[in-house]
Simulated scan of single mutants.
Amino acid sequence: MILNGSSRPHAFTASLVQSFTSGAESQGHEVTVIELRKLNIHACLGCLQGGKNTVKPCIQSDDMDIIYDTYRKSDVIVFATPLFFWSYSGLLKNAMDRLWALAECHPDELHGNHKSGALLVAAGGSHPEPLLTHFDYLMTRLDWTNIGKVVLTHTDNMDMKHIAHNAAAFQLGASIR
């Protein structure tokens, strides 16, 4: 499952997602890309009332149910985002925050569970370190296998009309076992 947190459908984050998907599919994996910009996902309320209904773990009713369903079927969760203020986009952060309802299920469906995670980042500049550090910490705290990160830097200086295939993202997708 790839959570694409970009607001732009044909930009650098999308190119990373396409390259990663091609790599994963080249090894026979099925990939579901969720375009968060197309979904209605409310911000987390921080109510700690999730998990009471395991079919619908969050008390809010919105498109997050699509993500919960796909998450449960997925072995690898990929977070794809443009770099916003040295962090995840708001679209992606909202979805990530709402995943917490899965931790409130009995048993906990968020931590461990043989999941793996990857990060794809398109950065206009050259300073993604805070996001990369957070992602590594997130993988540790979730007890997921960190399969890697791909960062495309200096996208502000690139031609968005001619975005090249990203070999590193392809290789990361192809490396999934």
Rank of each mutant, 00 (worst) to 15 (best):
G28V: 06
C105F: 08
V31S: 07
K38Y: 03
G124D: 07
S126E: 11
T54W: 03
R37S: 13
F170R: 11
T32M: 04
G173P: 10
I67Q: 09
I77E: 00
R72N: 15
D159Y: 09
G173R: 08
P128R: 02
V76C: 13
A103Q: 14
N4C: 11
H162E: 12
S6N: 10
L132F: 01
M64P: 12
K52V: 12
A103L: 01
N157T: 14
A167N: 12
V31L: 08
E25S: 08
I41K: 09
L142A: 02
G28E: 07
R98I: 13
D63C: 12
I41W: 10
F79T: 04
A123W: 01
V78S: 08
M96I: 15
N166R: 09
A174W: 09
M1H: 07
D143P: 00
T155E: 06
R8W: 07
L83I: 12
K93N: 12
K115Q: 03
F20D: 05
K56G: 00
E109D: 11
M64K: 11
R177W: 03
T32F: 00
N4Y: 02
L45Y: 06
L120Q: 06
E25G: 00
S15R: 14
S22E: 14
D143C: 06
N113Y: 02
V55I: 11
H165R: 10
Q171V: 08
D62A: 11
G125A: 10
V151H: 05
V78W: 10
Q18C: 01
E109T: 03
A122R: 03
T145C: 01
V78M: 11
F85E: 00
N166E: 14
V151M: 07
V76Q: 04
H111D: 00
L92P: 05
D75Q: 15
L45M: 12
N40K: 14
V33E: 12
S26I: 04
M139D: 01
A174Q: 14
S22A: 14
P82H: 04
H134N: 08
H42W: 00
R98C: 13
A118Y: 04
I147E: 09
K93D: 04
H106C: 04
S175V: 05
V55M: 07
E129M: 08
N157M: 13
R177M: 07
P9V: 10
C58W: 09
A123L: 01
L142I: 03
T54Q: 11
P9F: 08
S89W: 05
T155Y: 08
S126F: 08
S89R: 01
Q60R: 13
A103M: 11
H127G: 04
L138D: 08
L132R: 03
H10K: 14
F85S: 01
H29C: 02
T133H: 03
Y68H: 15
E30Y: 04
T155S: 09
N94I: 15
I163R: 14
G23C: 05
D63T: 13
M1P: 07
W144L: 01
K56M: 09
L45D: 06
S175K: 07
I34L: 13
H106Y: 06
A174E: 11
G117L: 06
E129Q: 14
S22F: 01
V55Y: 05
F20T: 05
A123M: 01
A169I: 10
N113R: 15
